[in-house]
Every structure is written in structure tokens, then in C-alpha cells.
Amino acid sequence: MTALLEARQLHYTYPASSGSALRGLSFRVPAGKRTVLYGHNGSGKSTFLLHAVGIHRPVEGQLLWKNSPLSYRSRDLKELRREIGLVFQDPEQQLILATPRQDMAYGLRNLGISEAELNRRTARMLTAMNLDPIADTPIHHLSLGQKKQVALAGILVMEPELLLLDEPTAYLDQASEQRLLDELERVHKEGMTVVMATHDTDLAYRWADWVIVMQEGQCIAEGTPAEIFGDYALMQRMQTPVPLLLDLWNTLPEELRGDTPPRCRKEMKRLLAAYARS
């Protein structure tokens, strides 16, 4: 497994806070995979993401980007933030200019990209994400789902190698969530490594290739979704319900189950249909 980003014994405490947010956090983010950082609120997921783009600096430990320790010189950080894109949970946190078109161009202008190239990339991204109809609408006139799409587009247009998303589906309705996941699927197929921090068990189970479980600022387990969510002892320890599909699959008769549990509704339906036919 080639690691793109690696955390080695990270420790971090917020100023004026009595407890540590990260307490010896160690794991590796595999290149080219869809990784989920799974954990409850306060487990240190967002803190880690802020470390990954160099906003926070660990008190102890080290972060490695492509096997090299992170450099905190401003020029290196600028380059790092071009290679690693972070989409925040609250889109208002990162949308700064007035319209989607202008905001998407913000990061590109920071990189000093020419206006012609900037316009070309912005237009292409607007079309790819079906944002053309709202391209010139003021951001404060958009819905939360649209703002999240725009925030994601503003990062994707920078063409990062690693995309980090902090609770990207929080507060979204199902249609907006599906649109977002479709977009992540598209960029992942184009070769981008995607990391999503979430506490949504069902989403983590159906979307991830690799799951990193965090608790109280530490990584307590990592593995494939089947390994992690199939570990009932771990789920119990975390006081987390088993993903719905996996739970349903486990209740099916042995002869109906097959070898691998279904990851999505479509696979479950296919399994049941096959059984009905037989």
C-alpha cells in the first residue's frame, strides 16, 4: 500500500483547552483509494484535517506528505495547499467571493494562474458539476446543498492530488447528498485520492475502500469496510450501530447471504432477486 499522507504519533492540544485533541495519532492514507476517517464528534477528525493542510502544527510527532516531512515555510505551505484540497463542513467557512464563478477562480488567482487559463478551468468545472445555471448568482442566495457543491468545486478546480472533506454530507437532503457522492465518484475515477471525515456509519460502509477509525485523538483500527464494520466487538466498544445493510444481511438465512455482504441498496436488491429466482 503506497501512502500519500502519513501521520506519525501526532499530538495536539488547542490553546486554553485542558484535554488533548490528538493523542499519538498514527495512520497512513493510501494513494488512489476512497478513505473514510470514521469517528464520533470530538474524536479529532477535523483537527487532523487542519494539520494535513498545515493550518495546525503538531506539538509532537510528524506528518509526511509523499514520504517527506511537512515543511512549514510559507512557500512550501502554498504548494502543499495546491496539492491537498480541504473542503470544510460549513461552506460559509471557505466561500469568500460573491458568486460561484468568482469564488472558484479565487484559489486559482492565488496560484498566479493566467486569466485565460483561469477562465477556461472555471468554465469547465462549472459545466462538469452542473453549476452553470447558478454560476453568477450571489452565494448568499444559494441553498446549503448548492453552497456545498460550490465549495467542493472551488477546491476541485485547483486539481489537488488529495481531496479532504470534513463531514461533506452534514445537513444535506438525500438528493444533494447523492449529487455530492456522484461528483466524488467522478473525481476518484479520474485518479484523485479522496478522504472523507464522517460519523455516518451507513455512508462510510457503502462509500469507502479503506476505513480509519478514530477515537479520542487516536487511530484505534483501520481496514476495509467489511473488516471494520463486521467487527462487532469494535462497534460495541465504540457504541456505534452496525451499518443497516450489513445488519440486514446478517439476519438473512445462511444460504441466501453469498460470500460478500452488499455495500449498497442495489447490491442488496440483486441478492434478494437472485434468491427469489432460485
Binding site: 480541504l86 467557512q93 471557505q94
Partner: peptide, 13 residues
């Protein structure tokens, strides 16, 4: 504070 973090992550200088 949040906006500052958001701007920094997007290359604000």
C-alpha cells in the same frame, strides 16, 4: 476565526 482557516486552506496570502 473559521473564515481565516478557510482562506488559509485555499492559499490566502
Amino acid at each position: 476565526h473559521m473564515l481565516h482557516q478557510g482562506l488559509t486552506a485555499r492559499g490566502y496570502d
